[in-house]
């Protein structure tokens, strides 16, 4: 398993655990009152589980499993893969920060731009890997 995939999959595992913990806290709050601010966790729970866990795991696994190039670097320019990882995770952090605190800058918008950049890089890295090795 290449290093960018290992990083993405491990990050996704961390987000999975955080997402489950937040979900569990909100579920317990439905049964026994914990704190009125607990529902602030809902948008973070959604962001963490969808982008942090599901999307990050699928991108990391695709980078590992999709057909590789027969010539040159087998998975393309690995520097782009690291930028993709940084961009996706910065995006998630910015969106979460916007849910928690109020900033003068639109952190949610900046976060979504980072996430879009990551997805764009993912498409660029993988487009030509969607192929078959068969010649006929």
């Amino acid at each position: 398993m290449p290093r960018p995939s290992r990083w993405m999959i491990r990050c996704s595992f961390v987000y999975l655990f955080l997402g489950i913990l937040m979900g569990a806290m909100m579920l317990i709050h439905k049964a026994y009152f914990i704190h009125s601010a607990i529902w602030m966790l809902l948008p973070i729970h959604i962001e963490v589980t969808i982008f942090g866990w599901i999307i990050q795991l699928t991108l990391g696994t695709a980078y590992y499993m999709l057909p590789r190039f027969l010539e040159g670097p087998s998975r393309g320019d690995s520097r782009l893969a690291y930028v993709m990882i940084a961009s996706l995770n910065l995006g998630i952090i910015f969106v979460i920060a916007d849910s928690l605190l109020s900033f003068a800058l639109p952190f949610d918008l900046i976060g979504r731009i980072f996430e879009l950049t990551a997805v764009g890089l993912f498409v660029k890295l993988h487009w030509n890997r969607i192929t078959t090795y068969r010649t006929s």
């Binding site: 999975l16 655990f17 489950i20 569990a24 579920l27 049964a31």
Partner: peptide
């Protein structure tokens, strides 16, 4: 029902942990 809901939360956290 409240106790079962807490049980559900604990079981799901435990399930995520064993997966990891």
């Amino acid at each position: 029902w409240s106790v079962l809901l807490v049980g559900s939360a604990v079981l799901q956290v435990a399930g995520g942990t064993t997966y990891l």
